[in-house]
């Protein structure tokens, strides 16, 4: 850093373009939305900034609070699931032969090459009543019926008719969608920490008599904490604000706070309320990050995430 400061021209040449970009496309729109939250609608498109707090008061409507609670719950469940699925995946990649690692990582990143909208629609094709999962189940049902028919057991065991599972348009589908879309955000930081893990520590644990499971929980998980924390943040925050996935995969009762915000800006045409909601969401996110930083700070040297 010191040597950079000694060369101000070079320093600014590198910093300025990025700083301008952020100012123009991140800070400025954010400031606009922040202002809008204190505005009043005076016409179909005109908004006056009157510094009213009515929009913020409107956010704390019990209906919205309930939606907010559900969003937190859905995001939490989805994040825990991505962690539970992502950790073994990341571990497997870090132990894979060096030759295969780039290939497996490519497979993990591959879905990013397709637009999230298309990926989510693809999930519909998989989950709907006449989708691939139910086709598969129906095939198994037919096989079972055919096998059991000679014994006259087919109706008793398999039922008279194949009833497709209701996999779509509910909270489970939303959580499934979030896990599917955000899994790479969990796997990649986990892999980055696990790959750097000193293998001799694992050997030492085995040497001292611990089994693989004990080694996993006593050595690997604590040492992978920085990656786990990054992964949780990277998944939880977008999951909390998601509206596309809940819109396409969710039912009438799986509305999330993201959907409500989207509606304020579009269908309801209430930009000030939408802006206030966005900022409340932002403050909650900040609060969570602050708590995490505080916890890491208290633990001293360990929480270097």
């Amino acid at each position: 850093m010191e040597s950079w400061r000694a060369q101000p021209a070079v320093f600014w040449a590198f910093v300025l373009p990025g700083a301008l970009w952020l100012l123009l496309f991140f800070i400025a729109p954010l400031a606009l939305i922040w202002l809008l939250a204190f505005g009043e609608r005076v016409g179909p498109v005109e908004i006056d900034i009157t510094w009213t707090l009515a929009n913020y008061a409107g956010v704390f409507d019990p209906v919205y609070i309930g939606l907010f609670g559900r969003s937190l719950w859905v995001a939490t469940v989805a994040t825990v699931l991505t962690l539970v699925i992502g950790l073994p995946v990341a571990l497997a990649i870090s132990f894979a032969p060096a030759r295969l690692k780039p290939l497996i990582l490519l497979l993990i990143i591959l879905p990013f090459w397709t637009n999230i909208l298309i990926r989510t629609y693809a999930m519909i094709a998989v989950l709907r009543s006449r989708g691939f999962v139910n086709f598969g189940l129906e095939y198994i049902w037919q096989l079972g019926t055919a096998v059991l028919a000679p014994f006259g057991l087919d109706e008793a065991v398999m039922g008279a008719r194949f009833v497709p599972l209701e996999l779509l348009y509910n909270n489970t589908a939303v959580i499934f969608g979030i896990v599917y879309v955000y899994l790479p955000f969990m796997v990649l930081p986990l892999y980055a920490t696990l790959d750097r893990l000193d293998r001799s520590l694992l050997e030492a644990s085995l040497d001292l008599g611990a089994g693989q499971v004990r080694t996993f929980f006593s050595i690997i998980v604590p040492l992978a904490r920085p990656g786990i924390v990054s992964g949780i943040i990277l998944v939880f925050i977008p999951a909390l604000g998601t509206f596309l996935i809940s819109d396409l995969l969710g039912g009438t009762d799986s509305l999330l706070i993201g959907n409500v915000i989207e509606r304020q800006f579009k269908a309801a045409n209430n930009w000030p309320l939408g802006a206030a909601m966005s900022f409340v969401l932002l403050y909650v996110t900040f609060a969570i990050l602050a708590i995490r930083a505080w916890v890491a700070g208290r633990e001293g040297g360990l929480g270097k995430a």
Partner: peptide, 15 residues
């Protein structure tokens, strides 16, 4: 972990 053998590693491997 089933051997009654313990090792002091060249890289120490202290947790």
């Amino acid at each position: 972990n089933r051997r009654q053998v313990n090792m002091v590693f060249q890289s120490y491997a202290v947790f």
